[in-house]
């Protein structure tokens, strides 16, 4: 494989998306504040978009469908961020903290 044409190779993008997914998942488990978990979730969203886009570029007869789908995903992710951050604000107002350990009242 020619190293200079590596950007034409779908495997690079798929591995990069998998790496991004793993990093996001690691952060999601590791973080103990709500905002930190939200940022990791955005990384996972990015991994999903990169994966979809790579498949759309190389293996799909009509690439337009993938573009529309990614736009849909981006809209969902923006909506998710808006809702999640308003919940963070509401939680902070009630608990004066957004650490996940301190808002585990319903843990039983």
């Amino acid at each position: 494989m020619n190293l200079l044409e590596i950007h034409q190779d779908p495997a690079v993008y798929l591995v990069l998306a998998a790496l991004l997914l793993a990093i996001g998942l690691f952060g999601f488990i590791r973080r103990n504040t709500l905002v930190g978990m939200l940022i990791s979730g955005e990384l996972i969203f990015g991994a999903a978009m990169l994966n979809l886009m790579a498949v759309n570029r190389f293996f799909v007869p009509d690439p337009t469908v993938g573009h529309v789908f990614i736009l849909f995903v981006m809209g969902l992710s923006a909506a998710e961020v808006a809702i999640a951050l308003s919940i963070v604000i509401a939680v902070y107002r009630n608990y004066r903290s957004i650490r996940t350990r301190e808002i585990a009242e319903m843990q039983g």
């Binding site: 779908p10 495997a11 798929l14 591995v15 998306a17 998998a18 790496l19 997914l21 793993a22 990093i23 998942l25 690691f26 488990i29 994966n51």
Partner: peptide, 14 residues
């Protein structure tokens, strides 16, 4: 966990 996920998904992709 993250390494396992990465290994599985990357292997599927390649």
């Amino acid at each position: 966990v993250a390494a396992a996920i990465f290994w599985g998904v990357a292997r599927l992709g390649v």
